[in-house]
Each structure stands twice: as structure tokens, then as C-alpha cells.
């Protein structure tokens, strides 16, 4: 992975660097947005907004966290803004009702088929706050303190959520084993 230490000294990202940032972190940012929203269109929008905001606000990056964590922080804030928006709530609620009433939506089925591993289906079944902390720990291997800082909660809360997330995953996996006999 490339290091972007010099970014902390700049107030402007050259377009070439923006492209490099997107190539390096674009998919991670998109994935994180998807873990937060479970919505493909919203993740497309959020990921683009994140890099535009990074581009506009590079001066606020002071190099006290990694570029990836900084981008995650923007992703999280952007996703929260979308979620707080009444329109997003409405759209996702409708999708929820639709998906609940018809087992799983066409989009969900399509997305499931593109997973690298069936474990992701279980991860996405987790409640958002457990899902997020598990992904940051298991997938991105962020240190506990960095997760706490990103989520703006105490390390104890991260540990608690992680514990619960793992327990729930264990339950899900047992359930799968039982079903598959």
C-alpha cells in the first residue's frame, strides 16, 4: 500500500493524486459505504462525494491518522448525513418493507451472488452498529483505538460491540450449519 504522508503538508490535491487516491482506496470506501447503508446507489453517491470532499478539504488532513482512516471518517459522516436525510430514510424504509415482504429483493439476490464468500451474507444480517465494528476489525484490521476514534465512542463500547458482533456471527453460523445439516 502506498503511503501518502506528504498529503498532510498540502492544501491542494493534484488531479493525478486524486486519481491515485481513488484507485487505491476507491473500492474500500465504496465497500465501507455499502456496509453502512446496504444500498448500492447510495454507496455510489457516497463514495464519489467522499473523494470530492477529500479533494476540497485536503487542508484539514493533518496526518494524525492514516489516509484510509481519514477517508473512512469522511465516508462515515457522509453516510450519516444521507441517513439523517428524510429522503434516504424514506427510500430505505420502502426498500426494507419491499425486501421483507418478498423475502429478498432482486438487488439483494444479485449482490449476494457477487459475494466472494457466503460469510458476507451473515455479516450484512448483523445490526448496523455491530456490522460496522466487525468490518473495521476483521476486514480492515483497524486498531481498537482507531475504531473508537472513528466511531466516536469509547474503546469499551467498541469491545462490547465487537463481542456481541462475534457472538451473533457465531449464532448465525450455527444456524447455517443446522440448516445445511
Amino acid at each position: 500500500m502506498l503511503t501518502r504522508d506528504y498529503l498532510k503538508y498540502v492544501s491542494d490535491i493534484p488531479t493525478a493524486t486524486l486519481q491515485e487516491l481513488m484507485e487505491e482506496h476507491g473500492q474500500e470506501v465504496w465497500n465501507y459505504a455499502y456496509f453502512l447503508t446496504k444500498n448500492v446507489d447510495m454507496s455510489d453517491d457516497i463514495a464519489q462525494d467522499v473523494f470530492l470532499r477529500a479533494f476540497l478539504h485536503i487542508a484539514s488532513f493533518r496526518g494524525q491518522s492514516t489516509v484510509r482512516t481519514w477517508l473512512f471518517s469522511i465516508t462515515r459522516n457522509t453516510a450519516i448525513n444521507y441517513r439523517k436525510n428524510a429522503f434516504f430514510r424514506k427510500v430505505t424504509l420502502l426498500e426494507w418493507i419491499h425486501s421483507a415482504s418478498s423475502a429478498s429483493s432482486a438487488e439483494e439476490q444479485y449482490m449476494s451472488r457477487t459475494f466472494t464468500d457466503t460469510i458476507w451474507q451473515l455479516v450484512l444480517k448483523l445490526p448496523p452498529k455491530y456490522r460496522e465494528v466487525l468490518v473495521l476489525d476483521a476486514k480492515y484490521e483497524l486498531p481498537l483505538s482507531e475504531i473508537a476514534s472513528l466511531l466516536r465512542v469509547s474503546s469499551g463500547t467498541v469491545k462490547s460491540r465487537l463481542h456481541r458482533a462475534r457472538s451473533k456471527m457465531k449464532e448465525f453460523m450455527k444456524e447455517v450449519e443446522r440448516r445445511e445439516g
Binding site: G26, Q27, W30, D44, T116, W120
Partner: peptide
């Protein structure tokens, strides 16, 4: 969970192009 979750790239060149366009306007 190390790999994935998706086989294919979701943040594709088309999205990068859009971001660059918007960045250029700004």
C-alpha cells in the same frame, strides 16, 4: 473476511471520471 465482499469492482473508472469532473469544476 479478508477478501471481498464483492468479486467485482464497484468503484469503477466511470465513477472516478465523475469525481474528477466535479473536482475540475470546483
Amino acid at each position: 473476511m479478508k477478501r471481498g465482499p464483492f468479486e467485482v469492482t464497484k468503484f469503477d473508472s466511470e465513477m472516478m471520471r465523475k469525481v474528477e469532473e466535479r473536482a475540475l469544476i470546483d
